[in-house]
Amino acid sequence: MVNDRTSLLDHLASRRSARPRDLVAPGPSPAQLARILELASRTPDHGKLVPWRFVVIEDRAAFADRLEAGCRAEAECHAAKIVKFRAKAFWAPTLVALVASPTLGHKIPEWEQQLCVGSVGMNLLHATHAHGYVGGWITGAQATMPAVVEALCAPGESIAGFFYIGTPALALTERERPDMDAIVTTA
């Protein structure tokens, strides 16, 4: 196997996130999505606990109903907010929830398992980009709404994020990056 570091460096330098509502068809085929999720799972996992799982959200209408139920349970729910939350179910052609599924009480601390879940999320974005698509990772209020969590999670699990995958409707732009002098020190 040839290790083409130049291509990997170009990949890392060119990956961008997109606003999920700006993603359109086409999205990945079922085979491509399966490969994206497989690649996302290739992450450091101390103890081989696999403290994550994926939920591919195909029934968008049912998910919109869950988002609406979550909104209605909030104190400041109104018609415009319901419309906004329902719309989130239909952003992008592909929607995947990353669920944190830690093994509680294990010698591998939960915080370390959470780091693993975050690594899976980043790998998911990289695999999406490598397949020629763009992804957007969001959490937001919907990630903690009981109506949504109960639909997607087992007891003890939580939503690490929603990954919207598709083709950008708008040109992607570079965002401001951190000043490396401000975040790199030596010891």
Rank of each mutant, 00 (worst) to 15 (best):
M1S: 10
V2A: 15
N3R: 15
N3E: 12
D4K: 08
R5F: 12
T6K: 15
L8F: 11
L8V: 14
D10E: 15
L12D: 12
L12C: 09
L12I: 00
A13P: 14
S14Q: 14
R15E: 03
R16A: 06
S17W: 04
A18G: 07
A18V: 04
R19I: 06
R19Y: 12
P20E: 13
R21G: 10
V24L: 15
A25C: 14
P26E: 00
G27R: 01
P28Q: 05
P28S: 09
P30F: 02
P30D: 07
Q32P: 00
Q32L: 08
Q32F: 08
L33V: 00
L33C: 03
A34G: 07
R35F: 13
R35Q: 10
I36G: 00
L37H: 00
S41P: 01
S41F: 03
R42C: 06
T43D: 10
T43K: 01
P44C: 04
H46T: 03
K48Q: 14
K48I: 13
L49G: 00
L49A: 08
V50N: 11
V50L: 14
V50F: 14
V50A: 14
P51H: 03
W52H: 05
W52P: 00
R53S: 03
F54A: 01
V55E: 11
V55D: 06
V55G: 03
I57C: 05
D59C: 04
D59L: 11
R60C: 07
R60L: 09
A61W: 12
A61I: 13
A62M: 12
F63K: 08
R66Y: 04
R66I: 04
E68T: 11
G70Y: 02
C71V: 11
C71D: 05
H78C: 09
A79N: 09
A80V: 10
I82H: 03
V83Y: 07
K84P: 10
K84L: 10
F85N: 06
R86C: 05
A87Q: 12
W91C: 04
A92M: 05
P93A: 08
L98K: 00
L98R: 00
V99Y: 03
S101F: 01
S101G: 07
P102L: 00
T103R: 10
T103W: 06
G105N: 05
H106N: 03
K107S: 13
P109Q: 14
W111H: 11
E112P: 02
E112F: 06
Q113V: 02
Q114E: 09
G118Q: 05
G121R: 00
M122R: 12
M122A: 15
N123M: 11
N123R: 03
L124N: 01
L125S: 09
H126S: 12
H126C: 10
A127N: 00
H129P: 01
Y133A: 04
V134E: 10
I138K: 08
T139G: 15
A141M: 11
T144L: 12
M145L: 11
P146E: 07
C153I: 08
C153N: 04
A154Q: 15
A154I: 11
P155A: 05
E157V: 02
E157R: 08
E157Q: 02
A160I: 03
Y164G: 02
I165K: 01
I165D: 01
G166Y: 02
G166S: 00
A169W: 04
A169D: 13
L170F: 13
A171Y: 02
E174H: 12
R175Y: 12
E176V: 15
P178V: 03
D179K: 00
M180H: 09
A182S: 13
I183A: 04
I183P: 01
